[in-house]
Design a protein around this nucleic acid. Structure first.
Lengths: 148, 148
DNA sequence: TGATATTGGTTGCATTTGTAACTATCAATT
DNA sequence: AATTGATAGTTACAAATGCAACCAATATCA
């Protein structure tokens, strides 16, 4: 057992993860904010629609583990700025299918390119084994937390 | 170069980091919130004081990369609940040295024990090599972001 | 059919946060 | 000493967030 005095915040995984998350997001965040006036949840919504096709708000909530109020507001904001449109189902009018507009798709394309660039810069510091382990560990942590 | 269609959010490092950070923090967060009514910044301040000895607010800001207003409010809250005290310098009264009270130290001791337990649970899923690489990669990402 | 529960989504309110402007103290320059 | 410029820390206001209550549409089942 590690002694209390030896317990360093620099070794505490949640702390490291939080700081790394902040650090790694900063530049990219600045980009989509400056360029499209988007916030993180909005970018995530755009990403899900661009990558996985038209979805309902609920599906985005589930896939991305984002609370429905956050998604609701993000969708409203994106709709107002004409990045997406809603289309209610005929058979169940509670659902609304969200689709990116042309502008939304263009933003998605651009942001994906930018994201890839960021990812390559970040990952560039690591070799293949490290990248692989890093991704696998993170994935595992995410999935472990999912149940709770 | 990866194609745009292949670019999966599940491989985008900032996204993985953010989700892993959230997932890994949740349980611990609940603990210090329920037990001491603390928020994350407050816990971090307590931790820094407990681990590294008395510091000024500024020093905590620098070490932990937290904005001074956040630290200021956390310190005020902790002082009110008597987890710490302030003591202005004689030679420069702009600085205030922060020290944990007995209650603050007790909370720190308890939280460190709890943090260790959480860390072991999280890390328990990985072998020594993986742990090492994980920590090193995270450290690197944090330090790389630091300059910007 | 009608009463109740569930589900997708929104809204209102209290709390948290970020930004910028502010106070107070000290340092440097004249 | 007086002016200017940093620096530590606080505060005020706007924006973002979380939570709970809410509405409308559907499902369930007496």
């Amino acid at each position: 057992m590690t002694e209390k005095r030896d317990f360093d915040l620099q070794h505490f995984l949640p702390y490291l993860l939080n700081r790394a998350a902040e650090a790694s997001s900063l530049d990219f965040q600045r980009y989509y904010k400056a360029r499209y006036g988007m916030q993180r949840t909005e970018w995530r919504v755009v990403f899900h629609l661009g990558r996985y096709g038209d979805l309902t708000a609920k599906e985005i909530c589930t896939r991305a583990s984002i609370h429905k109020t956050k998604v609701s507001r993000a969708v409203a904001a994106l709709e107002k700025r004409r990045f997406l449109t809603r289309q209610p189902f005929q058979d169940d009018r509670r659902h609304e299918l969200l689709s990116l507009t042309k502008a939304g798709k263009a933003a998605f394309d651009d942001l994906v390119k930018e994201a890839q660039r960021f990812d390559e810069t970040l990952m560039g510091a690591f070799n293949v084994t490290e990248r692989d382990i890093l991704r696998r560990c993170l994935r595992h942590i995410i999935d472990a937390g999912q149940g709770a």
